[in-house]
């Protein structure tokens, strides 16, 4: 082998090895632990086969967490995409390039904020007595408004913060996608009597369908990692109404019972579900 052939391997092998160790060792460890009855209380443990998994399917809190996670995915992905497309098109149609760039800069700030900070900021904004978001309601009715402890609104309030962080960022991406389109077909459509909404419905949407779907998929994967937001704003409450899968796994593993093995089995299920579902969606989208 000459140096030309060995060079790629010299660079690839060590990095891939490191990445594989980082990715697969914890994964293998989690899978291994999920077949045991390990808890944080005692150092002893033994293999119990699929018992953790069987228990999960009769665990109503687990089913609730699955359902909450599903709702969370739907709410955050759709609202982010709608806001992003709406805002992106609005900026594209109304702003001059210079203002656009300024807006893009401003719109990037929320997503640059660590999610923990965003969660704290918004928790305070949602505060029933002092929050700025609840201020108009208090001013009009004179009563406090507690969105985060109301089972009907808590999940939406948390989802709103997620939307605030990602909606603006995605709007910037949508705007850049629109700007990257060749302008002539849009101009031709204007000459072909198309109104603005028709141009976007008939010309830009079909041209941008593939990147937008990928964007939605990225957001869906990102939304799975909602833990920090939920943990700080509601801790899964009130009750278990905002308890997503990762939140529940964490509380089983560390907060309530220290049932490390049980939590691991949940994590493994989550991973399998994610891989299967997203592979399925990805395949569907590409055909």
């Amino acid at each position: 082998m000459n140096s030309r052939q060995t060079l790629p391997y010299t660079f690839l092998v060590p990095t891939i090895l490191v990445l594989m160790v980082l990715a697969f060792v914890p994964l293998g460890y989690a899978i291994n632990i999920s077949f045991q009855d390990r808890t944080l209380i005692s150092p002893n443990s033994s293999y119990i086969g699929f018992e953790n998994y069987i228990d999960l399917f009769s665990d109503r809190r687990f089913k609730n967490a699955l359902w909450v996670s599903f709702k969370w995915e739907i709410i955050t992905v759709t609202s982010t995409m709608i806001a992003a497309v709406g805002l992106g098109v609005l900026m594209f149609e109304t702003l001059k390039p210079r203002t656009r760039n300024l807006m893009c800069l401003v719109f990037l700030i929320p997503v640059l904020l660590p999610r923990v900070s965003a969660a704290f900021v918004w928790s305070f904004a949602f505060h029933p007595l002092y929050g700025i978001v609840t201020y108009p309601y208090r001013a009009i009715t004179g009563k406090p408004l507690d969105l985060l402890t109301n089972p009907d609104t808590a999940l939406f309030a948390v989802a709103f913060v997620d939307l605030w962080q990602w909606g603006f960022f995605f709007a910037v991406i949508v705007l850049k996608l629109l700007e990257s389109l060749p302008p002539q077909p849009l101009e031709a459509a204007r000459l072909d009597y198309a109104k603005t909404w028709q141009i976007h419905a008939f010309i830009t949407w079909p041209m941008l369908k593939a990147p937008l779907v990928s964007l939605a998929l990225v957001k869906a994967i990102e939304s799975l990692r909602s833990f920090d937001l939920v943990y700080i704003m509601t801790r899964g409450g009130p009750g278990i109404t905002t308890e997503t899968l990762d939140m529940y796994a964490f509380s089983q593993g560390f907060i309530e019972a220290g049932k490390i093995s049980y939590a691991s089995s949940m994590a493994v299920i989550m991973m399998v579900l994610t891989v299967v579902i997203f592979t399925f969606i990805w395949k569907r989208v590409r055909t």
Binding site: Q184, P185, A188, L191
Partner: peptide
């Protein structure tokens, strides 16, 4: 543009690709 009674042919054709 649509109200001017004109039609235009572009250099790069500007067809709707899809």
């Amino acid at each position: 543009p649509g109200d001017r009674g004109i039609a235009m042919v572009f250099q790069n054709y500007a067809l709707y690709p899809h």
